[in-house]
Design a protein around this nucleic acid. Structure first.
Length: 321
RNA sequence: GGCGAGGUAGCUCAGUUGGUAGAGCAGAGGACUGAAAAUCCUCGUGUCAGGGGUUCAAUUCCCUUCCUCGCCA
């Protein structure tokens, strides 16, 4: 409600003008430009980005790994119809909750979105909390392959049997010294990914380039920790009050089940546990709040160190109690 | 009131056959190139409920007080 003045303040601040500057030469959209807005969860990205897009007459690309699932609305705090009224949105509702997703798929959606926006001569506001996706947009992603479910099952079995050591051995057998290239050699995910790459047919598919050029500047929203804390608690309470459990129930009827990626979404994993009797609702609420806080922390770390972010203060009293 | 079981890190608990203690969770920091709301790494001094006693030494044994939870009145 008091968004208007807050956003005004934002736009007028000396920061935002300079930091949301036009990219030198966007790969796919030489004539238009991208305004990139990141930030931890619950800092007000949706409100600010919609407002920004309206003023600029721009389209919006969501860079969020959970908004891609159709029907997963309440738990992901997906922008409501009212919030994106009159706006063209990309990166939202791409696949069903029973499907797995990955950056490559998102990058395709992003590319299509940029093409469509460029066609209309419109700029793009990119907003989201998944730093990994924003990074892919700016720098592209490494050579393939995309994860193969069957192979991942095999590797998961290997991990279960022989632990991380078994994965390390496998990688070393395929390519001596390869494990040393990992920044995080005790992370099974990284090791499995390494093995996938080593087993891939080299050069079969080219790496996917970024869509927006490297020179793009990224603005990050931040809010005071205690404000964020309060907002997270309010958000979680609202989720249950507005029918998270019902949403999950009907999604389970409509789809065979949640995919690995969708089923791990904050709020969804817990809602499923509540419905299956593994968790009380009070426990679920607590768990969701904790996981959301932890996510916000990881996002902060990511943006601080992986992206060159210009921080601006987010709206403070939005969604106040 | 009696009997029993407990009171140890923010929370749940383990442990010390007496030499002042450690896990999980939470929290803090970090990593991150096709699972990323994922995954992984690093970080643990706390009147071991209070008081007294025994002892070279007690959180650990003894006595006592307080508190919690059971069962019996």
């Amino acid at each position: 409600m008091s968004l208007q003045p807050e956003t005004d303040k934002l736009s007028e601040s000396p920061d935002i003008g300079s930091c949301l500057s036009t990219s030198d030469s966007c790969i796919l959209t030489p004539s238009s430009c991208a305004w990139i807005l990141v930030g931890p969860t619950a800092t007000g990205k949706t409100a600010v980005s919609s407002e920004l897009a309206r003023r600029l007459g721009a389209d919006v690309l969501s860079a969020d790994s959970m908004l891609v699932y159709r029907g997963m609305d309440i738990g992901t705090a997906k922008p409501t119809a009212a919030e994106c009224a009159g706006l063209e949105m990309y990166g939202v509702d791409i696949i069903g909750p029973d499907e797995t997703f990955n950056v490559g798929m998102w990058l395709e959606a992003a590319r299509a979105g940029f093409e469509s926006a460029a066609h209309k001569g419109r700029d793009m506001v990119v907003a989201g909390g998944t730093g990994f996706y924003v990074n892919a947009l700016l720098r592209g992603i490494d050579a393939p392959p995309a994860g193969d479910p069957a192979r991942r099952d095999e590797l998961a079995t290997l991990l279960a049997r022989g632990g991380v050591e078994a994965l390390r051995d496998t990688a070393e057998t395929l390519s001596p010294g390869s494990v040393l290239t990992l920044s995080d050699a005790s992370n099974p995910r990284r090791l499995m990914r390494l093995i996938e790459k080593l087993m891939a047919d080299p050069g079969s598919v080219p790496p996917a380039g970024g869509v927006v050029c490297r020179g793009s500047v990224v603005a990050g929203l931040h809010v005071e920790p205690h404000v964020l804390e309060r907002r997270i608690a309010a958000r979680v309470a609202t989720m249950f009050a507005t029918g998270l459990l019902d949403e999950v129930t009907s999604l389970r009827v409509k789809y065979p089940g949640f995919s690995d990626t969708a089923g791990k979404g904050i709020g969804y994993a817990e809602a499923i546990a509540v419905l299956d009797g593994g968790l009380s609702q009070a426990e679920a609420v607590e768990r969701i709040v904790v996981r959301t806080r932890q996510l916000a922390k990881r996002q902060r770390t990511w943006f601080r160190h992986q992206l060159n972010v210009e921080w601006v203060l987010g709206p403070i009293d939005e969604g106040d109690v």
